[in-house]
Design a protein around this nucleic acid. Structure first.
Length: 651
RNA sequence: GCUGCCGUAGCUCAGUGGUAGAGCACCUCCUUGGUAAGGAGGAGGCCACGGGUUCGAUCCCCGUCGGCAGCUCCA
């Protein structure tokens, strides 16, 4: 007999060899447990068919838990593979891997012919058929690696990739297969007890993917899909995907005429008048933050010669991403980063410790070659402006500076309504510059600063820049996605390469440390994220058009509208008048489509009394207000960079 | 860059081996209206580009250039 410890410290005795599924009988009062898809035994999720051989802690894995969802999706992946086998013929398909990912799963196949979107509904039907057949999912363990290889070879003609996987397993590892009906797949499990337990699933997309992520290896066909226990959850997930698509900054950017990416300049965005306003407002905002933190701002050369890039190390570590060319037979390159320019700036003249920390900002336009297939709207471009700064300071000042920067990041993101942040420490990569001792010191310094600020962080090993470790900061946007934004990097290498020095308190020469940091990252990327975060409905201070005046009748109220426009413009607001020959309803609709924060209607009553009827973007009607009041309220709201309409709060 | 898919009016998309259509947007006219679509008319296309097949190509084939999804890369 073995002792099985259930939740709540209840212990039951059962014969050894009892299955995990049989233990579920102990939970007859718990309706949730009846739906268990697996069990957690000593913390490990196992099949319900697993035999329990020794004393253990036991809890059912029920729908609603992340573990249950993983099991469901993993089994659905196998059913997808089985359906693909039926669709193309099992001897025609080579199976790669089919893991669970965030929000779903995928499976990679080597198929006899290119798959087309028309195949997906057919495969889905076959999956539904397999669910209906309610095939038992059975675990089979191979006695050895060789045995496993024999089994997979015997099972199907095409198994090259699976064989390669098995050969790569460490000796002595248990190799297991799962079989459902005619289909067997290499897998560690666990799985649902039978295919009839499958929930709602949907095949989402097809893409190419490399075997083991290696671009030199075969390219496989990947099918992305998702699965949930209920149709409702699936529908909700699909609704979220739709919402994300509606907010896509490429779509919104086109609709609101913010920017455009022309075929003539792939990866190099053109900012249209509306987008330029948002861009400028954003940089003005950052400049204001910098002024209060006593930064200086510079603009360094865009093109510098090869000597400079060799000195900075970019020539050796970053050249594939740089645009280079010759002038008078000498090599030059367009800057991909601002740091060398900043270093040259620091090197002008003899510096004193009294100047430190010297905070040097640059809204630097950088150009980086990115492979055509990686370009994506504003979030992955070939030219972009970084809200960059390089802080030259002593080692002793590093922690205080990092603390200040973390504060700045929190402040700026808070102002954008991005309040949830997570931080990562990225450490030395394989391809790097500088000694190991330097890397030890810099990584310790960053980790120390994070700890001193009481910040929980995760480590991304090997993810640092080639010149130093970094703190990467992610923020959660309005629809719950985590976005990589700010970066704070420590660099001991740059000062050395440029032989940077300052005169210390005791009159000796000392070497400064450099902190590279960008708060928004790149303005382009940040704006792409902001467009999606706000769904194009920018807060007043960022909105390209802050208010629109709608004369009910052009003839009767046009004059009043023009006067109102002047009053609001005098208050520093961006205001237009809708002169289109349309009814008020149509004009309101157009203003809503353009996401204009305030719609101001002027008819007989308003023209008479020097007021305008105020309608907020969310549809709230505030009624007629004196123009002077409206001007003052909007001006204050914009100046405060408020995320919510002031007039609504006060009413 | 790689694999797959796609490219028809400013936008969203129909369509056919015999050189093209809708809605919205645009322009004009009527209408001067009260909070998400008033009416009529008009203009607008080298059907991405270059080859090929064909009596004839927007349609079929090949290539190029762009776009999309993913991968690799990047951060």
């Amino acid at each position: 007999m073995i002792q099985i410890r259930l939740p709540g410290d209840r212990v039951v005795l059962r014969p050894a060899g009892t299955t995990a599924g049989q233990v579920l009988a102990e939970f007859k009062d718990d309706p949730a447990a009846k739906k268990a898809v697996a069990a957690k035994v000593d913390g490990k999720v196992v099949d319900l068919s697993r035999k329990l051989e020794r004393d253990c802690a036991y809890e059912p894995v029920v729908p609603g838990s992340p573990e249950a969802l993983d099991v469901l999706r993993h089994t659905t992946a196998h059913v997808l593979a089985q359906a693909v086998a039926r669709h193309f013929g099992i001897d025609q398909v080579e199976f790669a891997i089919g893991p669970v990912i965030e929000d779903g799963f995928y499976y990679d196949f080597d198929l006899p012919r290119p798959i087309s979107p028309e195949d997906l509904p057919k495969i889905e039907e076959l999956m539904a058929q397999i669910r209906k057949e309610d095939l038992r999912v059975e675990r089979i363990e191979a006695a050895s690696k060789d045995h496993a290889l024999e089994m997979i070879r015997a099972d199907r003609s095409k198994s090259r990739l699976k064989q390669e996987l098995i050969e790569g397993f460490p000796a002595g590892e248990v190799v297991s297969f799962y079989r459902q009906g005619e289909f067997t797949d290499l897998c560690t499990g666990p799985h649902l007890p039978s295919t009839g337990r499958l929930g709602a699933f949907k095949l989402l997309s097809i893409a190419g993917a490399y075997w083991r992520g290696d671009a030199k290896r075969d390219q496989l066909t990947r099918i992305y899909a998702t699965a949930f226990f209920s149709k409702e959850e699936l529908a909700e997930h699909l609704r979220r995907l739709e919402e994300a698509e509606k907010r896509d900054h490429r779509r919104v950017g086109a609709a609101l005429e913010l920017f455009r990416i022309l075929p003539e300049a792939p990866g190099f965005p053109m900012w249209l008048p509306n987008g330029t306003i948002v861009f400028n407002e954003l940089t003005a905002y950052v400049r204001e933050k910098l002024r209060r933190r006593r930064y200086v701002e510079v603009r360094t050369p865009h093109i510098m010669n090869a000597d400079l890039w060799k000195r900075s190390g970019h020539w050796y570590h970053y050249r594939e991403n740089m645009y280079g060319f010759q002038i008078e037979e000498k090599d030059f390159a367009v800057k991909p980063m601002n740091c060398p320019g900043a270093a040259l700036f620091f090197a002008q003249g003899l510096r004193s410790y009294r100047e430190l920390p010297l905070r040097v900002a640059e809204f630097g336009l950088c150009h980086r070659y990115e492979a055509s297939g990686t370009l994506h709207g504003l979030t992955r471009v070939r030219s972009f402006v970084q809200d960059d700064a390089h802080i030259f300071c002593s080692l002793a000042q590093v922690q205080a500076e990092i603390t200040d920067l973390i504060g700045l990041v929190r402040e700026v993101y808070g102002d954008m309504g991005l309040s949830a942040l997570t931080m990562f420490l990225s450490t030395r990569p394989a391809d790097r510059t500088g000694s190991d001792a330097m890397w030890d010191t810099s990584e310790d310094a960053l980790a120390g600063a994070l700890r001193a600020n009481g910040i929980d962080y995760s480590v991304n090993p090997g993810d640092g820049a080639f010149y130093g470790p970094k703190i990467d900061i992610k923020a959660k946007d309005a629809i719950g996605r985590w976005q990589q934004l700010a970066t704070i990097q420590l660099d001991f290498s740059l000062p050395e390469k440029f032989d940077l020095e300052y005169v210390a308190e005791d009159g000796t020469r000392a070497r400064p440390v450099v902190i590279h940091r960008a708060i928004l990252g790149s303005i382009e990327r940040f704006l792409g994220i902001l467009i999606e975060h706000f769904g194009g409905a920018f807060p007043l201070w960022l909105a390209p058009e802050q208010a629109v005046l709608l004369p009910v009748s052009e003839e009767k109220h046009g004059e009043a509208a023009r006067k109102a426009q002047e009053i609001l413009e005098d208050a520093g607001l961006r205001v237009s008048v809708d002169w289109s020959n349309e009814k008020v309803g149509k004009k309101v609709r157009n203003a809503a489509i353009r996401k204009i924060p305030y719609v101001l209607v002027i008819g007989d009553r308003e023209a008479e009394s020097g007021t305008a009827a105020v309608r907020l973007r969310d549809g709230t009607d505030l009624g007629a207000r004196p123009l002077a009041d409206i001007a003052a309220a909007l001006r204050a709201e914009a100046a405060a960079r408020s995320l919510v309409p002031h007039m609504k709060q006060e009413s």
